[in-house]
Amino acid sequence: MRFWPVLGVALSLMANAVLAADYQDSKDAEKLIEEMVQEHQYDPEVLKRVFNSAARQQSILDAIARPAERTKTWHEYRQIFVTPRRTKAGLAFWQEHEESLARAEQEYGVPAEIIVAIIGVETFYGKHRGKYRVVDALSTLGFDYEPRKKFFRKQLKEFLLLSREQQFDPLDLTGSYAGAMGFPQFIPSSFRAYAVDFDQDGQIDIWNNPVDAIGSVANYFRRHGWKQGDPVVTRARVSGQQYADGVSDNLKPGQALSQLQSLGWEPLELPTSDDKVRGIKLQGEHGSEFWVGMHNLYVITRYNHSTLYAMAVFQLSEELKDAMPRQ
């Protein structure tokens, strides 16, 4: 990661301006520049150079149209993320950063295995952090991806603010096709809200510093309501004619456990509180699987709004916990 003074950023933008011009005459880019000048007192010339360099990437539009969370069954999705190879690498990551993970667990109340599993699912512990320039990804999606232009346009503005606040070169940062960055794959708004300088070296660096990434993930979960010591999800048996009425596609738990039980659901582990729960049906390797999701599973879906994602994180965390030698 390079940290640039304001003059250095301006000079870098000038040097890169000739590399692309997909948004040089874009009305959307012009409007965003006007808003950033009015709302955040940005230098318009600096922003013009950014968008003169930003490149539209068709591969980004193709990738976002077919996310694994919407195109795969649970069995297929699980095979990608819950594997011996990922568990082995996660164990090595945990052992290397055991002190930082223990401190994060103590300060934020989030289990070390959940933090490691998030980083493992997101980037294979930092090995796959994304190769797209973030400015290209967010410009492409913010100006040319009709289904979610509003969301990504907001992230583009957050990214520009983040670059100025941290004195990063906005043309230098890389990430995923959706503009997610670093070990934990934070989108810009998440970085600005939840990223922390966990090693207290004066810089927040989730790109190259796994300690900052660990603290940032833990802070994200605490801020989204993780309940220390509570279960996440449990398998269930179902019976009778009404169990299908207990299946919910709503990520947020909205049923009393007694209501689910009255429909023929028998969780193998009971919740430790009176929080609402959620009945889940997944297509597993050997047929239908039934699960009862609790509050902490919902917290995991705040990171990625997908039941499959949350289940993969949880099951990988269980594999890691079982593999980690405890003192």
Rank of each mutant, 00 (worst) to 15 (best):
A17H: 14
A112L: 14
A256Q: 13
Y108A: 03
V135T: 06
Q242D: 15
D205I: 05
V18G: 07
S53Q: 14
V116E: 04
R70L: 12
Q95V: 06
Q242M: 15
V9Y: 00
Q24F: 04
R223W: 03
R164A: 09
S26V: 05
F93Y: 03
W207H: 07
D144I: 13
F183P: 00
R326C: 07
K48H: 12
G8T: 10
D197I: 08
S306L: 04
L32V: 11
K154L: 15
F152Y: 15
A256Y: 14
F3D: 00
Y108E: 13
V121R: 03
P67L: 07
D275T: 05
A17R: 14
D245P: 01
D22Q: 01
W291K: 10
I33E: 00
D322N: 10
R86M: 06
E113Q: 13
K72M: 15
S216H: 08
E105S: 12
R148G: 07
F186S: 05
E69Y: 05
L47I: 12
F151I: 11
A102I: 10
N250S: 15
G179Y: 02
V110S: 05
L173W: 01
D322T: 13
K72E: 11
E269R: 06
Q57N: 11
G179P: 08
G293W: 08
K27P: 12
E105K: 04
V313T: 04
Y145C: 09
V292A: 06
K72C: 01
L257E: 06
A213I: 11
V217S: 07
S262R: 10
L263M: 14
A63S: 12
F143R: 03
G229H: 11
A195D: 09
W265Q: 05
F152R: 09
E165L: 12
S100C: 00
D136Q: 08
V116P: 00
E319L: 04
F183H: 02
L138K: 08
N16G: 13
N250M: 05
K276I: 03
I80V: 13
N52G: 15
E165I: 11
E34T: 14
D230Y: 15
A137L: 08
G279Y: 01
Q255D: 06
